[in-house]
Every structure is written in structure tokens, then in C-alpha cells.
Design a protein around this nucleic acid. Structure first.
Lengths: 335, 335
DNA sequence: CCGGCTCCTGAGAGCGCTCTCACACTGAGA
DNA sequence: TCTCAGTGTGAGAGCGCTCTCAGGAGCCGG
């Protein structure tokens, strides 16, 4: 039979150390206390194995030390195959760990889970919210803004709710990719765009267009949904539309891999017949055949920066509404 | 200026509904209450937008409704490229959502984060713990067992701490793969094993050995760490060791992809010269060249089952210590 | 018409912590 | 010697909830 009624409390530590509860609290929270009671309290804490009760602390401080990462996609898609989500989680968790906060993961696939997440956040179950992978008409940003909790988005939220966000230079990256294709003498440059209800899809297409605009080249566009299969389908369609194309910019590495497959199936050599550039620089880009030239976005940095920003909001600081991280063209063999 | 002092409490709802705090609590928790007060309370809750304070509730019930998923690998590796982690998260989160629990993600890369996680769990910050990707000498299982919190592991924990776990039939899957290679007439069958401080690495190698044992074939082994690069290196070494080999079983799809690359570089055709079988059936297995024959493990089910088990432990039920999910050989073109 | 039963309700204690406030004690300055 | 800062400490209220317990209302049989 173990000792009755569980864990030691502030009171039991206080009793053992021969001081008041308030003094123990001061020691635990690092406030001024004489050397001697300090020592006595520390010894009592060690001997009793005291660990503060988080709920009790939360009840009075109104802080939970929890940050939510909300992924409002269908769970299948979030996890499908690109490495965006794990990278962001990684970055976020690095920063939260240093700040001694915990990460609560909320996947919002269904309408029901949407409601549940909103309720949980309205209940101030967490101190702040990170919102990733936003789609066009998502009502969550507006709902959170109404609740008035610190929120930081990944990429500029579509719709009318202005929320601080951390994004990457999609436009510049796409333009750099297309610029590289132009510089290397390609003349008929197509693009496989991403979903047009996501900033990453929209802005990368815009970057493609703006780069072509400078030259007198015509734009050739097919739209995918960032997945490999959609890239394959889009590439086939592009070849149908314009068999003479000599380059493709795909808005994700996965779609670029699909394009590579479709091109191989169609008997085109890469990069000899058709140059291919991707976007993301995921781990697999190094291993495609040929290795993929692509636009690197600093995924872990995105996570880190989002976490830093939300922590500053939680702490009551003001932050700049917009952070844009640079992208970088990585040259390999496919273009 | 907004209304003073924040959110409505049980008391304010009670006042508005003209009943006592206890009655409101009963309504909120679905206990017996007359029709009329029921209605009055519901109306008051709606009008006030009342949401229960989670910390206050936790303080008295001793439940947090939080389940931790601990990934005690270096974060880089967890997220590297295979899809195991996202799949497990997905499954776990599906089940937790239904049970109205939240998922707390804890990445234990460094020793410091290890300590932090232990502290957080010792403080009963969560109701239960899911432990994945265990490595050999990890002290966490023992530490958690000592704390006496509900824990469910992914795969049998190495070391002497007996904890309930959910695993897959690694041995049977590997044996099936090798059996298929034997059946199709391959005679010199090598394996690229996984890390030998992880169950998945150990058992898949054992499965390979046991299948070969039945025939009179010699085993040819190289060890990788589940990554593509390690698979490539291992394949090169195997070709050095035994240029006449005609089949390889790789303990992960990623290593199989590395093997595919190394074989192509060495001028071997797959499957004509060398057959290749992987393990996992990740999304990318369908897209390798040639498409990968592999052993499918039901990753999402693992997550689901782990979550179910830990919820039962939290609820005070007894559970069977061991759950083994089936694996299944998926035939494609590589073998 | 009364005792006993069931059912619902309200009062109130208490979960473990933080934080304000007042008090005791020191030492410097008048 | 007395006042006045300045410093450390303890008492106690209160965070918002659950849950026990006693009491009141309603209904039955006697």
C-alpha cells in the first residue's frame, strides 16, 4: 500500500521545511528569499519529490503554457507525403521547448473537429495558436480572431481577417526558378501550379507569371494539388496541350516528381528535352532521377519563427504582422 | 472597453438561470436535473457563451484530458523522410478526437528535453503517455513505469521494463518477403537490416534469417539505419561482398529506394538481375522505378490501437499487454 | 392524515496554487 | 532614543470547479 492521497503539495513542503506556503512558492518561482530558508525549502522539495501542480497554477495565473498547432486540413492530406508538416512541427517544438511550453497538436479534418477545436480554444485551454496549411474559405482564422487569442498563421490568411503570419517568398522563389529556365535558353516554359485556394499555390503561379511577363513568352498552365499523382496528370495534360514545351516549373517537389514520371513515360529526357524545377527542396529531391533542381524553402525556420512570434504575443509584446523568409534556388541536374 | 474580468463562470450562469452552481454543474456534466431547470441553464449558457474552465475542472477531478505522444528520437531523424511518424500521429489523433482528449506532442531529441518530459509527466500534466520509436537503451520506459502513469509503447520496449505495447508482425512480414523471393526462384538473397537497437530492425532481420533457415541458403547481411542514404551504402557493400546476389530484402522502403539507386548505378536491372523487396509500404513505394514490392504495415492502425489502449488504461480498465497487428506482402514490379 | 420513500436541489468544503497585504525585524539617520 | 525606510515572512483570500451532504418537495401506502 502506498502512502495515502498522492503527491506532496506546497503545504507539505512548507511543513517539512518549517516555513510558510508562501515562502515555498517564492522559492519555486525564484523570488527573493533568505539563503537559509532557500536551502531548507530546496531540501524539503528534494526529499518529498515535490512537483508543482500545473492545474492549480493555471487556475490562478490564467496561463496554461500550452500552444496549439492547428492543421485544418483533412488529416490524410496533411500527412500525405511531403515533408512540410513534420518540418514545421520540428521547428515549432524546438522553440517551445526552450520556452518550456508544451505543444498541443490539433488536426481539423472534419467539421466536427473544427467545432471541437474552436471550443477548446475558446475555453482558453491554450495560451496561443499556430495555424498552418490554410485553405481559402477556412472560417477558423476569423473565429480565432473573434475569440481574441494570440494567433500566428503560416502564410497570409486568405479572406478578410488580418492576422500576423510567417511566410516564405513564394513569388520570388518561383520567379527565380523560371528566371533560371529562361537564362538557360528554354523558350516554352510551362508550370504545374498548386491549389488556387492556398497562398503557396497562388503566389507561386504569380511568380511564374511575373517572370514570364518580362520575357515575351507565353504562359502554359496546369493545376495540381501538390501531390505526386496530380503532378503526373498535370504533366500529361501539358504535353497534350503543347508537345513542344521544353521546361516545366512545378509548384512542389512532389508534383515535380510526378512530372518526371510522366515525362519518362512519354519518352522525354530530363533535362535534355525538358527541364524540370520543383519547389520545397524536400529530402527526396536529392534522390530523384535526375536529382531535382528546386526552390528551397526553410521549413524548420518557418516553424521556429511562428513559435517565436506567438510566444511574443502571449507575453504581451507587439510583433510585426508579416514575416517573409527567403527562398533559394538549388541547382541540381533536372534543369 | 470590454466587460470587466473576462469569461462567465458557473456562478454567473447559475445567477442568470436562477439556480445554484451545483445545478449548472450537473447540466454541464449531463447528470439528472428537471426539464425546466435544464432548459433555463442551457439558455443561460448560450446567452453568456459559457465554456467550462479546464484548469479548475482538472484541479478537482485530477484528469487533464491530455495524452502525450513522446518521440524520443532526435527530432531530425523522426521527421527525416519516412511516413511512420505522421501516420501514427494521424491514427492517434483520430481516436483521441472521438474521446475528446487532446494530443500533446513531445519530441525528445536532447538529454535536456528528456528531463523536461519526465518532469512534465511526473507532474501529471497528462493522463497517459504513448511512447514511439524506442531505441535500445532508452531510460524513458523505466522512468515512466516508476511514475506509474498509463503508458503504451509502439513495439515491445527493449530492456527489462515490461510495458504494454502495440506492434506489428515484423517477423512474419519479413519472412513472407523472403519466402516470396525464394518462391520466385532467387537463390542468393541478401538483406539490408535496420538499426539493431530497435525492435523493427531486430525482428525484421530475425524474420529474414528464419525464412532462409528453412531453405539451405546462406544469409548475406548489411545494416542500415532506415534512411535512403544508408540503404544505398549498404547495397554497395552487399554488391562488393557478393556480386552474384540476385535478391535483396530491405527493412524499410527508404532503404529499398537507396538499394534501387545503388543497383541502377551498378548497372543491375531490377527485377531482372536483382529483385528488391522493401518494408512499410509508404506512399512513395508506388512511385519508385520499378514500383516497389513491399511489406505493408498498418501504420494508422498502430496509432489508433495505441490510443485506444492508453484510453482504456486511463479509464482504469485492464488491457492485454501485447497487440500485434498483421503485415501483408504487396506485390509490385520490383520482385 | 402521517410516516417513509425517492428525487432534485443548494450550501459549502476543498482541490493546490499565487499574490496581496500587513507585520516583524533590521539598520541608518535625526 | 525615536522614526523611517527597507527587507523578508506568514496569514488569508480567492481562482472556478466538483462533489458530498443535508434538506425540501412530491408521492406512495397504511
Amino acid at each position: 500500500m502506498s502512502r495515502a492521497a498522492g503527491r506532496p503539495t506546497l503545504d507539505s513542503v512548507a511543513a517539512r521545511a518549517g516555513v510558510s506556503r508562501a515562502t515555498v512558492s517564492r522559492v519555486v518561482n525564484g523570488l527573493a528569499v533568505t539563503e537559509s530558508s532557500q536551502a531548507a525549502v530546496r531540501r524539503a522539495i528534494d526529499e518529498l519529490g515535490y512537483v508543482p501542480n500545473h492545474a492549480a497554477r493555471t487556475l490562478v495565473t490564467q496561463r496554461t503554457d500550452l500552444i496549439a498547432l492547428v492543421l485544418p486540413e483533412t488529416t490524410d492530406r496533411v500527412f500525405s507525403d511531403d515533408q512540410f508538416f513534420p518540418g514545421v512541427v520540428n521547428g515549432v517544438s524546438q522553440v517551445l521547448e526552450q520556452a518550456d511550453k508544451q505543444l498541443v497538436l490539433m488536426l481539423a479534418g472534419s467539421a466536427a473537429s473544427h467545432a471541437r477545436i474552436e471550443r477548446s480554444i475558446a475555453a482558453r485551454h491554450v495560451d496561443g495558436v499556430l495555424l498552418a496549411s490554410l485553405h481559402g474559405a477556412d472560417p477558423l482564422p476569423a473565429a480565432l480572431a473573434r475569440i481574441g487569442i494570440p494567433v500566428v498563421c503560416n502564410e497570409r490568411p486568405l479572406g478578410s481577417t488580418p492576422l500576423p503570419y510567417v511566410g516564405v517568398d513564394n513569388l520570388g522563389g518561383a520567379a527565380a526558378a523560371v528566371g533560371h529556365l529562361l537564362d538557360s535558353g528554354r523558350t516554352r516554359i510551362a508550370t504545374i501550379a498548386g491549389p488556387q485556394d492556398m497562398i503557396a499555390g497562388i503566389d507561386r503561379l504569380a511568380g511564374y507569371r511575373s517572370a514570364l511577363h518580362g520575357s515575351s513568352r507565353r504562359s502554359i498552365v496546369a493545376v495540381g494539388d501538390f501531390t505526386l499523382d496530380s503532378g503526373m496528370a498535370a504533366m500529361r495534360q501539358l504535353l497534350d496541350d503543347d508537345p513542344g514545351l521544353d521546361a516545366v516549373f512545378a509548384a512542389s517537389d512532389l508534383m515535380a516528381q510526378g512530372a518526371l514520371k510522366a515525362l519518362r513515360d512519354a519518352g522525354r529526357r530530363v533535362p535534355d528535352d525538358v527541364a524540370v524545377v520543383g519547389f520545397d527542396d524536400t529530402a527526396s529531391a536529392r534522390h530523384t532521377d535526375p536529382p531535382l533542381t528546386t526552390v528551397r524553402q526553410p521549413i524548420i525556420q518557418i516553424g521556429r519563427q511562428m513559435a517565436r512570434q506567438v510566444l511574443r504575443l502571449v507575453a504581451g509584446d507587439r510583433i510585426e504582422a508579416t514575416t517573409t523568409l527567403p527562398t533559394e534556388l538549388v541547382l541540381r541536374q533536372s534543369a
